[in-house]
């Protein structure tokens, strides 16, 4: 039994409590050679297992085809190669870790070592010296005696962030004659007589195509006429709408007189909070829920916010039917779609 208890040499004035409290209780491996041999065997087994798992990982990589699947209970179908690689290589690393710690705990010297902690406070002389140095610097620089220098420095520092603000503000500069960013955010490509076409399938929609309780993700028919640098993403991001149909007597209020058609309402698809496209519509409650932050809009009641962080109602698109019987917009949105921006107030 080796006792490695060191009493503190450096701070003799502190009470020596180490002698009584930190007595090493011998482990079974310290006193019983059979236990020590057993622990040694266990460590060797863990290291050997690690080697076996590493070889298994290599074998799995070579032998298992990339597209092979294996069905696990509860988890379902899983890619066999990644599962085998993850398990074998993970276990290889784990066994080395377990072995090292088992070795340290059972076989390496187990005595406690006391390391004294010392006070971090500087000595009184050093503290006084630091204060004196600071005061001497203050006096030498004349920071207190020359107010004109001090004020001009403060003024210069206060001006410094201005270029950052200007640069950020001018990240987008509208070309000559083009609308400002605020004006661009306030309009979409919807306009009078523009047909509503369903998303993906891109078919124009008749009122009888929208069943009671129905929901249609739709775009303006002129979306593909838009030519932007990056396709029509900006136009699409603002113009996407939802068509829903409810019984006319279920509509509590609308954003404008005659904006719906036989219980069919068109609303922007872009959440007014931070602009997630949303179509999570409950046809019985007429609630539209944004999965990003749980803003909830009541489409039967002017698209008003009933829950969540959105501050503005969901803008409604006025619709009617053209002479061929397809649903068209009466005009553009009457308020900006999507999240709020600076100029909107």
């Amino acid at each position: 039994m080796s006792e490695i208890v060191r009493s503190s040499q450096e701070a003799p004035e502190e009470p020596d409590f180490t002698a009584t409290e930190h007595v090493h209780h011998p482990r079974r491996t310290d006193v019983d050679p059979r236990a020590a041999r057993r622990a040694e065997r266990q460590v060797v087994i863990l290291f050997t297992l690690s080697a076996v798992f590493t070889i298994a990982a290599l074998a799995a990589y070579v032998l298992i085809p990339v597209d092979a699947g294996v069905a696990l209970p509860l988890a379902g179908g899983v890619g066999a190669l990644n599962l085998a690689l993850g398990l074998s290589f993970g276990l290889a690393i784990l066994c080395i870790g377990l072995g090292v710690i088992h070795w340290a705990r059972k076989l390496m010297p187990g005595g406690e070592v006391v390391a004294q902690r010392h006070e971090l406070r500087s000595s009184d002389e050093e503290r006084a010296e630091a204060v004196a140095a600071f005061e001497r610097g203050l006096a030498d620089s004349g920071f207190a005696q020359r107010p004109i220098i001090r004020r001009s420095l403060l003024g210069a520092l206060a001006l410094m962030p201005l270029p950052l603000v200007i640069i950020l503000r001018d990240l987008y500069t509208a070309p000559e004659g083009a609308p400002s960013p605020a004006e661009q955010l306030s309009v979409t490509i919807w306009g009078e007589g523009i047909r509503v076409v369903s998303d993906v399938a891109e078919r124009p929609i008749r009122p009888e195509d929208v069943p009671l309780g129905g929901l249609v993700s739709a775009n303006p028919a002129n979306l593909h006429d838009v030519e932007e640098e990056d396709g029509n993403l900006n136009a699409r991001a603002k113009a996407a709408i939802l068509l829903v149909r409810m019984r006319p007597d279920e509509i509590v209020s609308e954003q404008g007189e005659g904006w719906s058609y036989q219980g069919i309402l068109a609303f922007s698809k872009i959440c007014t909070h931070v602009g997630c496209p949303i179509a999570l519509y409950e046809q019985r409650t007429h609630h539209l829920l944004c999965p990003c932050h749980q803003s909830t809009f009541d489409l039967a009641d002017s698209g008003n916010v009933v829950f969540g962080p959105a501050a503005r109602r969901m803008p409604q698109l006025p619709i009617t039917v053209d002479e061929e019987g397809f649903i068209v917009a009466q005009s553009d949105f009457q308020e900006p779609v999507g999240p709020s921006f600076w100029e909107r107030g």
């Binding site: 179908g77 399938a201 008749r206 069943p211 309780g213 929901l215 829903v244 046809q283």
Partner: peptide, 28 residues
């Protein structure tokens, strides 16, 4: 919501069915 044949016709619905079947059979 109701996705009637007017907005998702038979062809659309078959495409969706195929995708759902694909999701069900997919291994991770």
């Amino acid at each position: 919501p109701v996705f009637g044949d007017g907005t998702l016709n038979e062809e659309d619905k078959q495409d969706i069915l195929k995708y759902v079947e694909h999701l069900q059979a997919q291994t991770q």
